[in-house]
Design a protein around this nucleic acid. Sequence first.
DNA 1: AGCCATTTATTAACCGTTTAGTTAGACTAA
DNA 2: TTAGTCTAACTAAACGGTTAATAAATGGCT
Lengths: 238, 238
Amino acid sequence: MAPAHPTRADQTRNRILQAAIREFSEHGLAGARTSAIAAAAQVNKALLYYYFRDKEALYAAALEEVAGKVAGDALAVLDLDCSPGERMLRFALQHFDRILCQQGFQALMQQEMVRFREGHSTAMPIIAKKAFEPMVRRVQVIAAEGMRIGELCDMDWMQMMYSALGANVFYFLSAPMVQLIAPFDPLEPVAVGARRTAGIEFLGQALFVDRKRGAQIAKTVLAAMPMPDVARPERKTA
Amino acid sequence: MAPAHPTRADQTRNRILQAAIREFSEHGLAGARTSAIAAAAQVNKALLYYYFRDKEALYAAALEEVAGKVAGDALAVLDLDCSPGERMLRFALQHFDRILCQQGFQALMQQEMVRFREGHSTAMPIIAKKAFEPMVRRVQVIAAEGMRIGELCDMDWMQMMYSALGANVFYFLSAPMVQLIAPFDPLEPVAVGARRTAGIEFLGQALFVDRKRGAQIAKTVLAAMPMPDVARPERKTA
DNA sequence: AGCCATTTATTAACCGTTTAGTTAGACTAA
DNA sequence: TTAGTCTAACTAAACGGTTAATAAATGGCT
């Protein structure tokens, strides 16, 4: 995958891909401009068509790039050596941090889900099978294990996923709207940190048979996984 | 607002608006075609510009139309005459049913949130203030009341909202992907019904101080609010 | 009621710009 | 030299938006 000697061409191709991820996540497939991608990658527009068949192929490649990275990270967390409940909380927290750090990815996926529901989209099936299916399968066995040993409440494992991840997605999804009607900025580090803590503590209360134990594990996980610096100064008004 | 005699012009304008809601929710602002909207509304393209300044103004009008309806429905539920905890569960359930019935609205909002985060969008501030702020405020006082009387767990009320609504949004948002990797279709009525029940029962367990009472109320609410028929046969392959 | 003047609603045809995509050829490192 | 990269210049089509002309209401006046 990653060659020892990234040739000049490889670097160029990658510059294009990174620029594409940015442009597509900000404007969607239809809204993205190929000329903008070329400019951001500092190449001629024709070069996009040298490396990728057309706009849609470039879009699919961008999607695949981010999805692969995400699934890899997630699987690593799910295979840690600790109790199923703790792995679940770690999984949820990592999910939160990923959205926090790579909001581009999240925007990309959201738009693609809408697009796919309408019947367009060809990339989804591929990344679903390749990246997300293994991850979801893993969560399923962990949830089952946690219930079997009496650590986690007996409930549908999918329900557990929806509870664990839904609030994360929704927090960032609704942030722009909350910014407008709340007296604070939900994307400010202090607010993000509070929400991050609250989310995990909530899962500790909601998922575990023993709420005391849930609170304990939540504390452990939060201590073990400090909030990453989000090095994005946001240039909205520019 | 709604005149006793909707004139011919009013009907036309409304046809355009409905067509716009559909087209924009399926393709986004950039992807939507004004000619497609005109065709769907069975009018000449120039009529769009007779009733609305430009494409973006039409988009804003479509957004405002759906947001207004949503907020109205939600406020009605929040003012029912029952305990704060029950109102919260009813609110969450109605939120679920709304997404189920009006998936177009949800797609529209999601895309707009992404768009707004990137700095574009002019419609968001208006619909935020007019439609969503009153709703959120109402939830806040209900949550506070529920905690004060010892019915609901003591937690940040925003956290409560994120938990209650996040899973709903996430369920439908992720449905296209789940369709690809799960052995069942999450949008099939039986799956939707199961998830609907599970979500409310989960909140009954997670939000209430007394889990028994939470389960009881969840059962009551589910009985009082039967799942609506979703009269959308889906024509994806067409 | 019936007729005309004025406004409102609607359309066919068109225009300028933007956009994805192409071509023909130049540069560069082995 | 030559295969692999890369670009300036171009094209054809699509798109948002306009215009000028027409059809349908509306409201007064007799």
